[in-house]
Design a protein around this nucleic acid. Structure first.
Lengths: 212, 212
DNA sequence: GTCTATACGATGATAGAC
DNA sequence: GTCTATCATCGTATAGAC
């Protein structure tokens, strides 16, 4: 087994540390130390800390978004074949489910998913813009599909609700652990992943389908 | 008109800058420069940058949360008087509406509301914990009220959905401007505050009321 | 009690030697 | 490609003036 090259070691270390501590709180010195690389290696290979984050996101997000895009297309094709409008919940599921299944996916990384959640709702314009650029085409695709599923609603309203969906999803991915903070129930256990995913899908599907 | 004291000038400057740039991206030097105070004034008056954020949040959030708490109590009282269960949408409105009305409230600050949005969904544990400590009692109150409004649902599920609600709300408050990013529609105007608020209330009410 | 001046360690970034 | 040295800026702390 050969040692991965410096660039890969930096990506792996950054992915792990960003997911544990967040982007701002992780220093380049911590990353290069974990990756057994020199401090200047990050700027040599990636240009800046920000571009390193972009590379970390792209490595996992491009295949993930391809999965989601394919699943949306499948829902649309099935609806066309059946001569019906696409099902809202199926579209929501196509968009959300892969995000959580990703935790155990062989191509994925359990660390990356919390970076995705953080990026999606980050207040930092740098982080947010990177994420938006990566997910923009997928959002447009989903928006158009939802317009077919919900022809009685204005497209603008559907877009607004899709925006709320992303907020709920990002919050869910990133902070499902802190839900316990409020809970006084002493025997409360962390929700199972699948239960939480289905709860989220039910919630946003109902919100998207609400009357105008 | 007398000049506000140093402590107030620091709070005002921090509130303004945090809302524009976020907590992490705002330096103490920028704050003290705006407030025409010495760099050390922050640590003298507040102890740390983190405690300054806490003071900025508390100054506006305590009266705001009192308003929200009162409105929730009103909804509960009205339901008891009428012998009915409380209305879910009325509770959601009590929780959300004041947040947006706050922008024009004479006691409020238009800047503060985006700090609230950012804090609510911040990935930074320091920021998030400060915010959670301030809003914890209100969340518990709302949760109990929603359990009365939705007796057919498990309390745990209601809590999870309340969690999604906070995600959608924080995202909405903080990033309503970037909704335009995805929109190709050339004549799209930023949504009016009231329209956006009502859209959010409709969305989360439907999500909260979804069948189990 | 308030405020100023100053210094300390850590950070992201970069230039230049090898 | 990699490394050392160095830079400006950051949050924080403190000594001392008023």
């Amino acid at each position: 087994m050969t040692q991965p090259d410096t660039k890969t070691r930096l990506l792996d270390a950054a992915e792990s540390l960003f997911s544990q501590q967040g982007f701002a709180s992780t220093s380049l010195r911590a990353i290069t130390s974990d990756a057994k690389a020199n401090l200047a290696a990050v700027n040599y290979h990636f240009g800046s800390k920000e571009t390193l984050l972009s590379a970390v996101l792209q490595r996992r997000l491009l295949p993930l978004n391809q999965q989601r895009s394919d699943r949306i297309d499948q829902v649309l094709s099935a609806a066309t074949a059946a001569g019906t409008t696409p099902d809202t919940e199926a579209l929501v599921r196509a968009f959300i489910e892969a995000n959580f299944a990703f935790r155990r996916d062989k191509y994925g990384s359990s660390a990356l998913i919390s970076i995705v959640g953080r990026s999606m709702i980050s207040a930092d314009p740098v982080v947010r813009d990177l994420f938006l650029a990566l997910i923009h085409p997928l959002i447009n695709q989903l928006h158009q599909a939802l317009c077919l599923a919900l022809p009685q609603l204005p497209t603008r309203l559907i877009f607004t609700r899709l925006f709320f969906t992303m907020g709920a999803m990002g919050h869910c991915i990133c902070f499902s652990g802190i839900a316990q903070i409020f809970k006084e129930d002493p025997d409360s256990n962390p929700e199972d992943n699948n239960v939480m995913t289905n709860n989220l899908i039910n919630f946003v599907t109902a919100g998207l389908e609400a009357p105008c």
